[in-house]
Design a protein around this nucleic acid. Sequence first.
DNA 1: GTACACCCTCCAGTAGCTAGAGGTTCAAGC
DNA 2: GCTTGAACCTCTAGCTACTGGAGGGTGTAC
Lengths: 142, 142
Amino acid sequence: MLTIGALAKRTGTKVQTIRYYEEIGLMPEPGRTGGGQRRYGEDGLDRLSFIRHARQLGFSLHAIRELLNLSDQPNRSCDEADAIARRHLKQVEQRMARLEALRTELKRMVRECSGGRTSDCRVLEVLRDHSECLTDHEEIGA
Amino acid sequence: MLTIGALAKRTGTKVQTIRYYEEIGLMPEPGRTGGGQRRYGEDGLDRLSFIRHARQLGFSLHAIRELLNLSDQPNRSCDEADAIARRHLKQVEQRMARLEALRTELKRMVRECSGGRTSDCRVLEVLRDHSECLTDHEEIGA
DNA sequence: GTACACCCTCCAGTAGCTAGAGGTTCAAGC
DNA sequence: GCTTGAACCTCTAGCTACTGGAGGGTGTAC
């Protein structure tokens, strides 16, 4: 049996985060000692490892909830899990494309700045005047 | 003189967002009509355009605040503005590298899933067992 | 039996907005 | 001058995914 602190250490999670996952229903309520402290078994460890690993791969908690549900039903078709992963992959690729455009623009700004006074600064100038931009980076977000 | 709605339309911002920028001190308090409605001039339009453009380039509101301060002092050296842009560029590149690693892993997961039942699903299997991963994707985050 | 590390709950805060309730003002048309 | 309706006002709460702290209780080793 693991204390919450031991489980945290084993999975590289913060104690508060584990309690948070329990609060939002991602982690089931574990057993408690007479004094009210949480104690976890193998299943708790497995589940938290799954969650953490999915988080490291960038899945949202919403997606993870769905994946956990699917994982709990071994006889269902795995199409849904596959679809979730594909959707996530697509999002990652979109974010990469967007960052690539930002990178190009930022590099240009920085390259052109020759280091005078702020009144002549290329960086600030570009920010002031959108028409200086090559790409149209419309949406805001990660 | 522009109403807040007209300013919002001109800059592609939501009305609430403009009020939010005012609340946190990014936008100065504008003049008001007798009835208490905000009215903006050219300076308001310029400032909000600057903010939105910087946001589109992914700068944080914190960084934008600094950039605006620098922009207000035309005789200072532009080294600081340059440094902020370089720092941001570096962050963008780090995020890209991280996303690239995620993409590789996700692609592999999706490719290997052959579409049976969830009990044999490669996607779920990989999530369950970290040792299946090629890369060590340690940190969580965008 | 006493230290002391660890656990408990509850509350507030982070970024950057967004949405809604409930009420007021402005400008156009008659 | 009066009415209508869109747009405005403030205030509060919500979103994601945690993180930190206050104030107090528990478990275990010596």
